[in-house]
């Protein structure tokens, strides 16, 4: 006689400690999303490119960290700097060699190009490193637990949340407080008006693309100690990223970041209180946002 005890869905875990743990887990998951979505939003804003290869950039960030660790003994903390720099260069290369040539055509062309590129990148990694994943050690100093006011939290997840917020804040400061940032923001949020004001928008396009790729790769570096490092790790990830960008509002950088954390939370609460419906919950959220605010939470009205 088998007896399967199903956990009660709603209500049973409603104690405060578990709720705080779920919240931190959601914010950590949101950190991965927010960083990658930030890059996706910047690229879409400045180039009008729906970058389907963004999941591959996330994947390459994690794979590069693992390869650098095993071959050159580059540790997590160094990889946080080196990998985004390498991927920035990779992004510039992709923009110069491929994306640039299709910018004047319909957006579908670059969508198909980056989709094809993602397939190529996934298969190259599969061929080089197999399918079962690469090993990665827990970074020094981030193992174990931390006790905050009676609640036990895993250090690494807390770190992912704090670090990703920090990076988002830094990017925000760069975008709002520096001249280069303001130009990029103007070019991202309203390229036509920026051009009309005499800003050479196309000169900024290449580094902006590289930057977007680098931020996604940074998210991948953060994922290396925490998730399976495989060629296909970005394949489902990128679908959720698109949902996030739609929820946040196409072209809105702040929207992408806020929606990234929001989706992380929805996922965690969904998993905690509604079981396997968690993944649908994200798309239900997307449908509601599209119905109520077609331009997304932070989107411009005309973007819809």
């Amino acid at each position: 006689m088998t007896r399967v005890v199903h956990p009660r869905t709603f209500g049973s875990d409603l104690n405060m400690t578990a709720f705080i743990q779920y919240t931190v887990q959601g914010l950590a998951a949101g950190g991965f999303y927010a960083l990658a979505a930030l890059g996706l939003a910047i690229i879409f804003g400045a180039l009008g490119v729906v970058n389907f290869a963004h999941g591959s950039a996330y994947m390459l960030g994690a794979v590069l960290s693992a390869v650098l660790l095993t071959t050159l003994n580059v540790h997590f903390w160094a990889a946080l700097v080196i990998v985004p720099l390498l991927m920035f260069a990779f992004g510039i290369l992709i923009e110069r060699l491929l994306v640039r040539w299709l910018l004047r055509l319909d957006v579908l062309y670059n969508f198909l190009l980056t989709f094809g590129l993602s397939l190529v990148l996934v298969d190259v990694v599969k061929n080089l490193y197999g399918v079962s994943g690469l090993p990665y050690e827990q970074p020094a100093g981030l193992q174990g637990l931390i006790h905050v006011g009676g609640v036990t939290l895993p250090k690494y997840q807390l770190f992912v949340f704090v670090f990703s917020v920090l990076v988002c804040v830094i990017v925000w400061v760069l975008l709002t407080r520096t001249r280069a940032g303001m130009i990029v923001r103007a070019a991202t949020e309203d390229p036509d008006r920026a051009r009309a004001l005499g800003i050479n928008v196309s000169r900024w396009i290449t580094p902006v693309f590289g930057f977007g790729i680098a931020v996604a790769a940074l998210s991948g570096v953060l994922a290396a100690p925490f998730r399976a490092i495989t060629a296909t790790m970005g394949t489902n990830f990128v679908i959720i990223l698109f949902a996030i960008v739609v929820i946040g509002g196409l072209g809105s950088i702040l929207g992408a970041v806020v929606a990234g954390f929001l989706v992380g939370l929805v996922e965690a609460y969904g998993q905690a209180y509604a079981g396997t419906f968690a993944q649908i919950a994200i798309f239900i959220l997307m449908v509601i946002v599209i119905l109520v605010r077609p331009a997304g939470l932070f989107g411009r009205r005309d973007a819809a």
Partner: peptide, 18 residues
């Protein structure tokens, strides 16, 4: 406890807490 999870899935933290 018998806890179903989505498949495929890259985020198990909540299920582990449960």
């Amino acid at each position: 406890a018998s806890i179903p999870t989505p498949f495929p899935n890259d985020n198990f933290a909540t299920f582990i807490t449960k």
